[in-house]
């Protein structure tokens, strides 16, 4: 899901369920490579009740600045609209799955 300054609060902050968000930039080769993986995982994660979204930090400076993005790609896990965990740099599918499991233990 494409997240923007405009829809971020409705889709993530005011959303009850957990959301995994990747902050990325077009100049970041790692991010460009992560995109298809994230898109592939979107449906699978949704079945577990987890939203998956992406924020382009240049196009959405308010959201990027609110979460003080210092490196890309940055993965944030939100629960009840609040960030609960994060990870910077390329991630394998297993690592992302682990990120969910260690924070949403029993909730999935």
């Amino acid at each position: 899901m494409k997240l923007t300054d405009k829809n971020f609060s409705a889709e993530v902050q005011e959303s009850e369920g957990p959301a995994l968000v990747m902050f990325w930039g077009s100049w970041c080769p790692v991010c460009k490579r992560m995109q298809p993986l994230l898109e592939d995982m979107e449906e699978e994660f949704l079945q577990q009740g987890v939203k998956v979204g992406q924020v382009n930090i240049d196009q959405n400076p308010h959201t990027a600045s609110r979460y003080k993005i210092k490196g890309t790609p940055t993965f944030y896990l939100f629960k009840g609209g609040e960030p609960v965990d994060m990870s910077v740099g390329a991630q394998t599918e297993k690592q992302l799955q682990n990120l969910l499991e260690r924070n949403l233990n029993g909730e999935l």
């Binding site: 930039g25 100049w27 970041c28 240049d58 990027a64 490196g71 890309t72």
Partner: peptide, 9 residues
């Protein structure tokens, strides 16, 4: 507009 190389904010 600031295209931050390596994500340096």
């Amino acid at each position: 507009v600031d295209f931050r190389s390596c994500g340096q904010s």
